[in-house]
Simulated scan of single mutants.
Amino acid sequence: METYTLPHLPPNLRVLHVAYFENVTNAPDIRRRLVAAATAPGAEGEAARTAVDFAFIEAGLLVSKEHLLTGALAALLTSLPQQARAELPAPPEPKTRSHNLHSEVLMALSPNNNITDAIRRHGVGDGTTRLAVVKFAAEGSSQAEVYGAIADVVKGELTPLDALDDAARIDWARVDKVYKLGEMNQLKVDDIPRRKVAAVVNTVAVKHVT
Rank of each mutant, 00 (worst) to 15 (best):
I192Y: 13
M1S: 14
V133K: 01
A151Y: 00
A138M: 11
A84R: 09
L62F: 07
A149V: 01
A149N: 06
V178L: 02
T25L: 08
G60N: 15
V124K: 11
F54H: 05
N185E: 14
N100G: 11
E157A: 14
A55Q: 04
P92T: 05
E104Q: 15
L68A: 07
F54C: 00
Q143G: 13
D117R: 00
M1Q: 09
V209L: 14
L13C: 07
L69Y: 06
E145V: 13
M184R: 10
L69T: 02
M184H: 06
H122P: 04
D190W: 07
I170N: 04
L158C: 04
E145F: 12
K95S: 10
N23K: 13
K65L: 12
K135H: 10
F56R: 03
L77R: 11
L9W: 03
T70K: 10
A137R: 09
E87T: 07
G71M: 09
M107Y: 02
V134W: 09
K177M: 10
V206A: 08
E46I: 00
K188A: 12
Y20M: 07
R49D: 00
V154E: 02
G127T: 11
A205M: 13
A27N: 01
D53K: 05
A72R: 06
R174Q: 15
T96R: 11
P94V: 02
A173N: 12
L68R: 09
Q82H: 11
T210L: 15
A19E: 08
H99E: 14
D162P: 07
H122D: 05
A27E: 01
A149H: 08
N114D: 10
S142V: 11
G123C: 03
K188E: 12
Q83M: 13
D53Y: 04
V105D: 05
Q143T: 14
E44H: 02
T50A: 15
D117G: 01
R169K: 15
H99I: 10
E46Q: 08
T39F: 02
R32W: 05
A167M: 15
V204W: 15
V154I: 07
Q82W: 08
